[in-house]
């Protein structure tokens, strides 16, 4: 009996694994041809002239991490859904270097399926930002959002900490401590190290870990969970009180969405308690506020009554 049960469990588990994998399996087979080289740091091919095996490093820009790809937003696609089938031959034909790349709006624009992401608004904001192609020649969505690994964190129940780390890593790809080659390519300049440009900020490391860069560097938009109107550095938020206050600007961004989601899911009190984001001056618990005011009032009231009685009795004693 035990063996039969084990067999059923084993078959059930195998079937479940198969069902999970089936979605991607067809694409995986089709993509394997590309990822055999582009999914590797070192790829090899046979030199048709002398039959020798040549090993080469795959340039970073052409490398695709298959693990990230299959957990990313675009995992349902085959490589040739976005790239021309001529890539099938190797060496790839030279003219493919000039293959036009799709932009986000080519697929996501004007489509009700993606309406909640507001791609058109994102594009408007992006065009007005310091990242606009007008400011940075050749800057596209792909510079921040690698289509081969891009993942959606907001609206997926991902924790605040992980979302912040993911989103900030996007910025840090170019804006890391010593600046990057990409910055040289796009802006022909090298940025100041982050610790220097943010030396005015107390608890730097904590802020970098707990707050998304865009909270201070991009103008909030009501319908966007990820603001894209990134402003010049000199107009970034520098006043503590803009976040650390009751009317915190953080409440007009993604944290508000997280809070509402949390409260809907866990109820008001739990929603407040389970809220991962604690911001001094902004995180307030109304129930505790009221309780503390009552207790404070009772204490002062008690003291006042006691003091008045003492005064009255003292006066009476003096008259006696």
């Amino acid at each position: 009996m035990k063996k039969v049960l084990n067999l059923i469990l084993f078959l059930g588990f195998t079937f479940w694994c198969f069902a999970q994998d089936h979605v991607n399996s067809e694409n995986r087979i089709a993509n394997r041809h590309c990822l055999d080289c582009h999914g590797q740091r070192v790829y090899s091919f046979v030199n048709p002239d002398d039959g020798s095996t040549v090993r080469k490093l795959m340039p970073v820009d052409f490398r695709v991490d298959s693990a990230l790809f299959y957990t990313g937003a675009h995992h349902i696609f085959k490589c040739v859904d976005c790239h021309v089938p001529e890539y099938d031959s190797f060496p790839h034909p030279n003219q493919l270097r000039f293959e036009p790349m799709y932009a986000c709006l080519d697929c996501h624009g004007g489509d009700d399926t993606y309406a909640k992401y507001h791609f058109e608004t994102i594009d408007e904001q992006f065009q007005k930002s310091v990242h606009s192609p007008e400011t940075l020649n050749g800057f596209t969505c792909w510079n921040c959002h690698d289509p081969h690994s891009f993942r959606i964190n907001q609206r997926t129940g991902e924790s605040i900490a992980n979302t912040i780390a993911y989103d900030n890593a996007v910025c840090m790809k170019c804006h890391f401590e010593t600046g990057s080659e990409v910055m040289l390519l796009l802006a022909n300049e090298k940025l100041k190290p982050m610790s220097v440009s943010h030396d005015w900020l107390p608890n730097q490391e904590l802020h970098f870990r707990q707050v998304r860069c865009i909270e201070c560097h991009a103008a909030m938009h009501d319908s966007l969970l990820v603001a894209h109107l990134v402003s010049p550095a000199d107009s970034a938020v520098k006043q503590c009180k803009e976040c650390h206050s009751r009317n915190t600007m953080l409440l007009s961004s993604w944290y508000r969405f997280q809070n509402i989601e949390n409260r809907n899911k866990n109820g008001f009190v739990n929603g407040v308690l389970l809220n991962e984001a604690y911001v001094i001056g902004a995180s307030r618990n109304e129930i505790l506020n009221i309780l503390s005011l009552i207790l404070f009032g009772l204490t002062l009231g008690g003291i006042l009554v006691h003091a008045l009685f003492r005064l009255k009795m003292n006066k009476r004693k003096r008259h006696e």
Binding site: K241, S245, R246, I280, G281, R284
Partner: peptide, 19 residues
Amino acid sequence: SMQYSDIDFPLVRFDLAVT
């Protein structure tokens, strides 16, 4: 001052209050 920090009525300036 930090807990009830208010943009319009700051008791102590936030950064000074923290320090």
